[in-house]
Computed example of a mutant assay.
Amino acid sequence: MSLIEKHATLDANIGLSEASASDYIALLKPRVMSLVVFTGFVGLMAAPGHINPVIAAIAILCIAVGAGASGALNMWYDADIDAVMKRTAKRPIPAGRLSRDEALTFGLLLSIFSVLTIGLFVNLLSAFLLAFTIFFYAVVYTMWLKRSTPQNIVIGGAAGAFPPMIGWAAVTGSVSMESIVLFLIIFLWTPPHFWALSLFMSDDYEKAKIPMMPNVMGEASTKFQIWLYTILVAPVAILPWIMGFAGPVYGVFSIVMGFAFLYSAWTVWRSEVGEAMIRPAKKMFAFSIFYLFSLYAVLLGEILVRKALLVLGV
């Protein structure tokens, strides 16, 4: 069955389904959402100034709901290719547990709720950034870039990089160089992270006709570009310390982790094309998640300690 036929079959499924709550939760892409919420929270905590704890909780909730809305809209549009790929075939829509119309309605309602709520209770800039993030992921990345260019991840990665900037804007009502650096860390991290995945999932992407870098430019070119982007992100990740909004613990940790990430990318780059690169690519993909999470976790830890010392008057 062709992708068009699969899409038509999925489109025909417009009646009410017997979906469970877990199916709707799956639409939100909870694993992706958790990282988005975490980085948004770090951005909020790193921002100078004070924010009412209730308003802060509303801001984080809206970032979470907005991320979930983006995931639901992505699954609505990509239901045809999700049905083809092993990694995504068991998602609620291709598995037949949810209709595409239900996913679309769910995603739109969550989008409207999250943007209106953060706009009413927090500030207009954070609402604009959240709305732009949802639009960028659902329309620019999902509907346009993903199926048209091997640079889909490079440009589309901006959507996942906005949450710390939204958190920062929720406190300050502005965008600063510090929040841009937090954005850049995720933006530059995204290509090597997803290209490592694409190296060992290239058959899936080929079946779905998604022009990922290995399928279009070849594995050798992909490995080299993973190495180049890792060279870019490693020094950028040190900037919070250099700029003074992170302390020496983060500074040392970011340098050590940067060298570890570079080594991981180097092992992928130097591996032989074919089966020999699968193992290092999988290792790099797993390490890249730990790399980003740990950087933000250490930054958050320093911020919390600093705030606690201020409260104690130390």
Rank of each mutant, 00 (worst) to 15 (best):
G251V: 15
L16I: 10
V233K: 11
L44G: 03
Y296M: 14
I226F: 08
W269Q: 15
I153S: 00
A8N: 13
F285T: 04
L125R: 01
F293I: 12
M33V: 05
R97D: 01
A26T: 00
W266E: 10
S294G: 09
N123A: 05
A170V: 04
M212C: 00
V305T: 05
Q151G: 06
T133E: 09
G167R: 00
L3G: 07
P248Q: 12
S174L: 04
P214H: 08
L28K: 03
T9M: 12
A297F: 14
F135R: 14
F128Y: 08
A260N: 11
F245K: 10
G96C: 04
T149G: 07
V122W: 01
V298N: 06
K307S: 13
L304V: 14
S179P: 08
G66K: 05
Y250N: 15
A8K: 12
F183W: 09
R270N: 15
L16G: 01
G258M: 07
W241Y: 15
M212D: 00
I238A: 14
G49Q: 06
F121C: 12
V84H: 02
P280M: 10
P150W: 01
M201T: 07
V216M: 10
F290W: 12
A56P: 03
P191C: 06
M33S: 06
V268G: 03
Y296A: 11
V171Y: 03
L61Y: 04
R91C: 02
I60T: 06
A237K: 12
P240T: 11
L125V: 02
G160H: 02
Y250C: 13
M85R: 04
S22N: 08
L116I: 15
I93D: 04
W76N: 03
I186W: 06
W189N: 03
P192K: 00
G301W: 08
G68L: 05
Y263A: 14
L104D: 07
I186Y: 08
L27G: 00
E302N: 10
V175N: 05
V122C: 08
Y229M: 09
I63P: 00
I58N: 07
W195A: 05
A95P: 04
G247W: 15
V298S: 10
A56M: 02
G157S: 09
G167M: 07
Y291M: 12
V314T: 06
V311K: 10
P248E: 15
